[in-house]
């Protein structure tokens, strides 16, 4: 069953002197439980594609369906609500809230969802243990390493029980050991919680571990390979 379905998706940036087709006629289907890497050189359109799938940006033409819902029909406020309920985000630079602890950062999204305190506590502790930083729960981002912060970001992304997680270059700021650990973690969560992961990357270590690799070049799909 398709979780995400794009049809002739095109995004054109025409703010500069020359119009740029960042995403050019992309049609893909991603099913539940996939572990997919969107790869390609810088400027190939990976992040733009992820942003459109995540409802952060709108396409110039074409359509995106997430869990049978057409994103193009939603206004800004509806999109925000949709993201809260359906999508987990992991950003390249972690983007944790600096004034909150690891536990509070993970819990934050559930508070926005109105989850009860009891359920929050159980879920947060479980997630932090799963991502291997249960003992760092009361530390703030500034007191943790990059790898640890990205683990918190993954825990936060999963806290809302999303339909899928979008990760934009999740290993870009990590050393090789932390990157390997994070990949192990995401694969484990993918298997154990059946979470669909889609990440943009040009990190070969990530590409090697992905079960499906969609390669973009100049906004077009160059190849779509399942392993």
């Amino acid at each position: 069953m398709s979780v995400i379905e794009t049809s002739h998706l095109t995004k054109i940036y025409d703010e500069g002197p020359v119009a740029v087709r960042a995403v050019d006629d992309v049609s893909i289907q991603i099913t539940e439980g996939e572990f997919t890497a969107v790869v390609g050189p810088s400027g190939s359109g990976k992040t733009t594609l992820l942003n459109i799938i995540g409802g952060l940006d709108r396409p110039s033409s074409g359509s995106v369906k997430v869990a049978d819902v057409e994103l193009g029909d939603m206004n800004e406020d509806q999109l925000i609500k949709f993201r809260l309920e359906n999508i987990g985000f992991v950003f390249q630079s972690y983007n944790l809230i600096p004034v909150l602890t690891a536990k509070e950062n993970t819990e934050f999204i559930m508070l926005l969802q109105g989850v009860s305190e009891k359920e929050r506590d159980t879920r947060v502790l479980q997630l932090l243990d799963e991502v291997g930083i249960g003992e760092q729960a009361n530390k703030r981002p500034s007191e943790m390493s990059g790898g640890q912060q990205q683990r918190v970001a993954v825990a936060r992304a999963l806290a809302s029980r999303p339909k899928f997680v979008l990760a934009d270059e999740p290993t870009a700021n990590l050393d090789s050991k932390s990157a390997e650990n994070l990949l192990d973690l995401m694969l484990q969560l993918n298997k154990e919680e059946n979470v669909t992961f889609i990440f943009s990357t040009h990190d070969q270590r990530v590409i090697d571990r992905a079960r499906r690799v969609i390669t973009l070049e100049d906004g077009k799909i160059l190849s779509d390979e399942s392993r």
Binding site: E76, D77, I80, K81, R83, L84, F89, S93, I109, L112
Partner: peptide, 15 residues
């Protein structure tokens, strides 16, 4: 960036 992230993960503009 932080405010953008909050809105990206689903924090309503009103909040």
């Amino acid at each position: 960036r932080e405010i953008g992230m909050l809105m990206a993960i689903g924090m309503a503009k009103k909040k």
